[in-house]
Design a protein around this nucleic acid. Structure first.
Lengths: 206, 206
DNA sequence: GGAATTATTGACCGTTTGATCAATAATGTG
DNA sequence: CACATTATTGATCAAACGGTCAATAATTCC
């Protein structure tokens, strides 16, 4: 048994240290969920004393909210990059759905699910959740609205369909967290579902 | 300031007391979420000493799992009763979706969302979540399979569609928890989505 | 009525959480 | 080199958690 001593952390500039802490929190959230982002766990992961984390962050409530935001906004940027690589609303929407449901983002899904739960007791986090949901919906709405303009899609409520699709995807991913396996048909079925919402014939997106 | 003293609880039969405690836990879960189901909170709500709750329950982990199961299985029974009041797979599926998405079950949705999150650190709860998801899926699958037999629906994967619909509904309800309002179009859009998955023409369910 | 049974409780314990603050040690500046 | 600045830390606190156990009080039984 070696007591897990900790050497004194090398002195760094406040900017650099703040970055270390933010990164440690982000890693913890992705590996063990938002609930694992505690003062002591972040300190241990960053290799500093717990008091230093408290010194660099106004409160754990806000650190958790910021961490959530960092994880999710990174995902949104990733998706926007994906959309830029393909052309045409139908292809874009298909690629988006297939990517988001490919089952390789369980770590981000855990962050989402825990954010919904923790947000009920952390108003700062709840605000961040609403912001990021708005951002996600805006991306989906953009693709759908573009498709309506080009005549690819048919709906008079692009915003509503975007919310609907976002909810569907979140629910399916949350479900996959508990019921591993069976992720095969999800994307195909979701595409059919979206076809139904956008007045497309069966297979128009697949 | 009156210190919240507590009178000694009247002596009851073990069965009755166990019921009191289960009911107190259930009420707490519906009013404040599963995370509020703590030893002390349940004791306070039941009007007994914390030690008595510990005496009647093997562990808080299992009390939380049982409470989740009580809340959710009651909802499933309610839905099965609803299905018995109408006839024909299309009408049944429509009624089911409209009911589940009518926005009056936020309390149950909170229990679901917190169960997904807490289940990651409570294996007993995780098992209960899987069981209840299976039960829910079985209900949906029953309606869908019946529709396939009667020729109302068209799919070769009733089980898959059932899982898909369950995920969609859960996601939409979780979303409504954060983004209140706008619950108007959800049912209609969901019906169109299901039409897409079941090879139906637009409006066949609405 | 007295004794055995048992439902109930208060007083604890150990752990984990977020947070504060005086003390310490490293840096940079004159 | 001496000194001011400041990044970092150990010690400590209060609150909340699940859980244990001997003592107490109500009931039942003979």
């Amino acid at each position: 048994m070696s007591t897990p001593t900790r050497v004194r952390a090398a002195r760094k500039s406040p900017a650099e240290r703040a970055d270390d802490i933010a990164r440690a929190a982000r890693d913890l959230a992705l590996e063990q969920g938002l609930a694992a982002v505690t003062l002591r766990a972040v300190a241990a992961s960053a290799g500093v004393a717990p008091a230093l984390v408290a010194h660099y962050v106004p409160s754990m409530e806000t650190l958790i909210a910021r961490t959530f935001q960092a994880v999710v906004s990174a995902e949104i940027i990733e998706i926007e990059a994906l959309l830029a690589t393909v052309e045409g609303p139908r292809v874009q929407l298909g690629a988006l759905i297939r990517t988001v449901l490919d089952g390789t983002r369980d770590d981000v899904t855990v962050v989402w699910v825990e954010a919904w739960a923790l947000g009920r007791r952390n108003e700062t986090l709840a605000r961040a959740v609403r912001e990021e949901m708005d951002a996600w919906q805006a991306v989906l709405r953009g693709v759908i609205a573009a498709g309506v303009r080009t005549g690819d899609f048919e709906t008079d409520d692009a915003a509503g369909v975007a919310w609907q699709l976002l909810g569907m995807v979140d629910g399916l991913n949350a479900q996959a967290l508990v019921r591993w396996g069976d992720t095969g048909g999800r994307a195909a079925l979701t595409l059919h579902a979206v076809e139904g919402m956008l007045g497309l014939s069966r297979g128009a997106l697949g």
